[in-house]
């Protein structure tokens, strides 16, 4: 009896929490399918339409270029950050260099600084460099934000790998780089994939720097959402459609991560 009560309470709580988290997202999906007249009505009884998803790609919204900006910025950031961070993480994990701990702390400490504090210096720097409103500027800024985080994450995965296999490979005749290629990378793949996806999500969702550093050409999706607040009021149905477009890739990746994350936790050592 008591067990049943606890079971019921637990599940009730789960339902409540899940509802609180899922409902806004669900409502966004719903609104994205509504016509402007239905957007403000709290009803499930409406004529669904995909019109909004087409409208957002048309003038004056031009979401297409923002999707491209976001994809390029996030994609290139991941492609630079992950290989560099993997090597850095390996070094932090394996080489007993003097000052290693301090260095690692310094790298991580960049994460303690609130973005708002450094956004202005970045703005001034990019203005002098003539890089305002460019994707390159966004990629540079995102690399600065994401790299320490990815180093820290991948280091965790590499720390968990047994050193034995690497030493065995070195004795079998492999150079250090060969060891990384043949042994470490294949074993750390789940971890590196997970980190890549986290890195992509962070960059994809980044708002503040994109807001300050871009104006027209390099605007990314999260900033683009602001455009739907017009003199005519907030265009909820269009904003929701754009919101869905931002969410879906992240949603798919989250599902991917989930699979790899559990693998990352269970793979590794053979004893």
């Amino acid at each position: 009896m008591k067990k049943k009560l606890i079971w019921a309470a637990e599940h009730a709580l789960l339902v409540v929490v899940s509802f609180m988290i899922i409902f806004p997202i669900f409502w966004m999906f719903l609104t994205s399918l509504k016509r402007p007249i239905d957007a403000y009505s709290i009803t499930f009884n409406f004529q669904p339409t995909f019109e909004n998803f087409i409208t957002v790609f048309r003038d004056p919204w031009n979401l297409g270029s923002m999707v491209l900006n976001s994809a390029l910025v996030a994609g290139i950031t991941v492609m630079i950050a992950v290989p560099c961070s993997s090597l850095a993480a390996y070094s932090f994990s394996r080489f007993r260099v003097k000052g290693r701990k301090i260095l690692f702390f310094l790298v991580l400490s960049t994460q303690f600084i609130p973005a708002v504090v450094i956004v202005l210096p970045f703005f001034l720097m990019f203005r002098s460099l003539g890089l305002l409103d460019t994707r390159i500027a966004l990629i540079i800024v995102n690399l600065a934000i994401v790299t320490p985080f990815v180093i820290w994450m991948i280091k965790g995965f590499i720390d968990a790998l047994p050193v034995d296999s690497e030493e065995a490979a070195m004795i079998d005749g492999a150079s250090r780089l060969r060891v990384i290629r043949d042994i470490v990378l294949p074993m750390a793949t789940p971890g590196i994939l997970t980190s890549s996806i986290f890195c992509f999500i962070l960059t994809w969702n980044e708002f503040l720097f994109s807001l300050i550093l871009t104006r027209r050409n390099a605007v990314t999706l999260p900033v683009g959402l602001v455009n739907f607040r017009t003199e005519r009021g907030d265009l909820w149905e269009l904003m929701s459609a754009a919101g869905v477009l931002i969410t879906v890739p992240i949603f798919l990746m989250a599902i991917l991560i989930q699979k790899h994350f559990t693998r990352g936790m269970t793979a590794g050592a053979i004893k």
């Binding site: 034995d164 070195m170 079998d172 005749g173 043949d182 294949p186 590794g268 053979i270």
Partner: peptide, 30 residues
């Protein structure tokens, strides 16, 4: 000299096998 240039072979306590390779690939690697 790094280990790879010493022409040695070693058996480790925890074997140090390559978990992502098959038995044949493990033996073949050197």
């Amino acid at each position: 000299k790094p280990p790879k240039d010493r022409d040695i072979a070693m058996v480790f306590q925890n074997y140090g096998l390559y978990p992502h390779m098959s038995v044949a690939q493990n033996i073949e690697y050197p």
